[in-house]
């Protein structure tokens, strides 16, 4: 049994069918990729997997438990974190405050009213460690809105990472990044994979084929192909495309 499984997910918005029938599974300690052309239903699939939308049919299981339709906070509580394609930072907070709020120890004390978060050196230190890990050491007290685009992307992942999830979902992490920033990001993901299972939805195939252990191709709301990067490349049309040229 895989750590995360989705069975026959179906989702529609009024007349428009976005997910026809999606069955996927993601193994522990792997990087799993989801790719597909624009409008194929990738993002909706991601939102259903992470609890933002409830599927009309089908089931989502994590670690053997049925988590279909649970609200986001409960899914987060099970050890699933996600980043967002459209960045979702707390812009009025510093980079450090963004991270600290996501720490499990702070979440556990989320209803404390007398404890002073800014004087909690334990939480501050742990937040700083996460920032150092994502390459933002020295930017602790910069407002999130003052960070560069690449730094904001990194912080977006840092927030998800700070929650110490068992499974991390990354929604198009390279979107808007240049070549250099993408390379740095690939290095970062290569590093964090040691401690967390990762699912990446991605447009940039090169990025995905380099990192992922298995990839699912989604189109028309279905999984049209699935396998390891080498398996997927083993196709005449794929070899003839830009993707084939990468091999």
């Amino acid at each position: 049994m895989a750590l995360f499984e989705a069975h026959h997910l179906h989702k529609r918005f009024a007349d428009q069918v976005v997910l026809e029938d999606i069955t996927l599974s993601f193994e522990e300690n792997q990087i799993s990729g989801i790719m597909g052309p624009n409008g194929a239903g990738k993002t909706t699939c991601f939102n259903v997997l992470t609890g933002r939308f409830k599927p009309d049919r089908g089931q989502v299981r994590f670690d053997g438990q049925d988590i279909t339709g649970l609200p986001p906070r409960k899914i987060a509580g099970k050890g699933i974190a996600r980043s967002f394609q459209m960045m979702n930072l707390f812009d009025e907070y510093t980079a450090l405050e963004n991270i600290v709020l996501a720490l499990p120890e702070v979440r556990a004390r989320g209803f404390s009213v007398l404890h002073d978060l800014s004087n909690d050196s334990g939480a501050q230190d742990r937040g700083a460690q996460v920032l150092a890990r994502i390459g933002l050491a020295g930017r602790e007290h910069a407002l999130a809105s003052d960070l560069s685009y690449g730094q904001r992307r990194a912080l977006e992942i840092g927030i998800a990472l700070a929650a110490e999830p068992r499974m991390l979902f990354l929604d198009e992490p390279t979107s808007g990044l240049g070549m250099d920033a993408t390379a740095i990001l690939a290095e970062l993901i290569g590093e964090i994979r040691k401690s967390v299972s990762i699912v990446i939805i991605e447009h940039d195939m090169r990025f995905l084929f380099d990192l992922a252990d298995t990839i699912a191709v989604i189109h028309w709301g279905q999984v049209i192909a699935q396998g390891g990067p080498d398996e997927l490349r083993d196709n005449e049309w794929v070899r003839a495309s830009n993707l084939g040229a990468l091999a």
């Binding site: 279905q222 997927l232 049309w237 794929v238």
Partner: peptide, 16 residues
């Protein structure tokens, strides 16, 4: 269906 030789999806679609 939109076929584009650049992105390689044709191969996956035909296999599907």
């Amino acid at each position: 269906p939109q076929f584009n030789t650049q992105d390689g999806y044709i191969g996956f679609m035909l296999d599907f």
